[in-house]
């Protein structure tokens, strides 16, 4: 089984951890908890450093770089929250992220439907074309991509970031969605056809609703990738007003490099949207990642 279905979406019921069994669990070995706690501390330590650092002032940070806030200062955070630049960058990141996600999902579902449920010569080649896209990371294509975007007149526009991101998001989407759409039983398609639905009617009435779980997974992956993306915006966006959050954070950090406390406040505030998003969709993200590369 693991050879043929190595790539497929993980359905909700397959997600690890069945809730019902939790009551019966024993506490187990305390050493286990100690080691787990140690690793959690290591994972979260740097994050806590950034967050608490924002609550200190620069003289506190200079005299004791690893210390806790004494007293707690809120003005760093308030300054960032009241700056128009920060909100503009959040807005830009949101526009880029949402448009990329919608683009990847819409184009991805359409082409995956063709690859999953039509039979025609060249289908395998088409699938390979997209699968091969996994081998073309954006880093390699960035220089000519920059030239291409410049020739299209899309420099300093969010569209210049969105279009390439959609293109580079498609391979993963296709890899996840094609097996998902194939799993819809033929009988449903036959029934729809007997009821007079065309293939396109079947697509809109049956496939789109049934593929929602897979679509959500790929959409989340596309959004998180876009939200964190740095290299492409670095090349395409040079006008401050078009900066997305990662560019903004980097620019702020180099502009105010002496004002460490503000940099830490800015950095930790820019971390929050991704963390909220992650907590909300944790099961989907983890399920999607593991489903996408499950052995």
């Amino acid at each position: 089984m693991s050879t043929m279905t190595s790539v497929r979406p993980m359905l909700e019921e397959e997600l690890p951890e069945v809730r019902g069994t939790r009551e019966r669990q024993k506490w187990g070995n305390p050493v286990t908890y100690f080691i787990a706690f140690l690793f959690i501390a290591l994972s979260l330590g740097p994050v806590l450093y950034i967050v608490t650092g924002g609550f200190r002032d620069n003289s506190q940070i200079t005299s004791s770089p690893a210390g806790f806030p004494t007293p707690w200062r809120f003005d760093n955070y308030l300054n960032v929250l009241s700056s128009a630049t920060f909100w503009q960058q959040i807005g830009n990141s949101a526009i880029v992220g949402l448009t990329t996600t919608i683009g990847v999902v819409v184009l991805g579902v359409m082409v995956s439907f063709v690859l999953a449920r039509y039979h025609f010569q060249g289908r395998a080649a088409m699938y390979s074309l997209f699968a091969a896209g996994l081998m073309f990371p954006m880093t390699v294509a960035i220089t000519p991509l920059y030239i291409l975007v410049k020739d299209l007149g899309l420099m300093n526009s969010l569209a210049g970031v969105i279009l390439p991101q959609i293109a580079f998001g498609l391979p993963v989407t296709v890899i996840i969605l094609v097996p998902f759409l194939k799993a819809i039983p033929d009988e449903i398609e036959e029934a729809a056809s007997i009821d007079g639905a065309s293939r396109l009617g079947f697509f809109f009435r049956m496939v789109v609703p049934l593929s929602i779980p897979g679509v959500v997974t790929t959409g989340i992956l596309a959004f998180v990738a876009s939200w964190n993306s740095y290299l492409l915006p670095l090349f395409i966006l040079s006008d401050q007003s078009t900066y997305t959050l990662p560019l903004g954070v980097q620019a702020f950090a180099s502009q105010y490099s002496v004002d460490t406390a503000s940099v830490l406040a800015f950095t930790s505030l820019s971390m929050i949207p991704a963390l909220i998003f992650f907590t909300l969709f944790e099961r989907r993200i983890v399920g999607g990642l593991t489903g996408a590369v499950k052995g």
């Binding site: 994972s43 979260l44 450093y49 740095y230 954070v249 830490l264 950095t267 971390m271 991704a274 944790e282």
Partner: peptide, 15 residues
Amino acid sequence: IFVPYIISEVIVGIG
């Protein structure tokens, strides 16, 4: 344990 993976490289780098 998964939190560091979800934070962007820029934030990790600066921190």
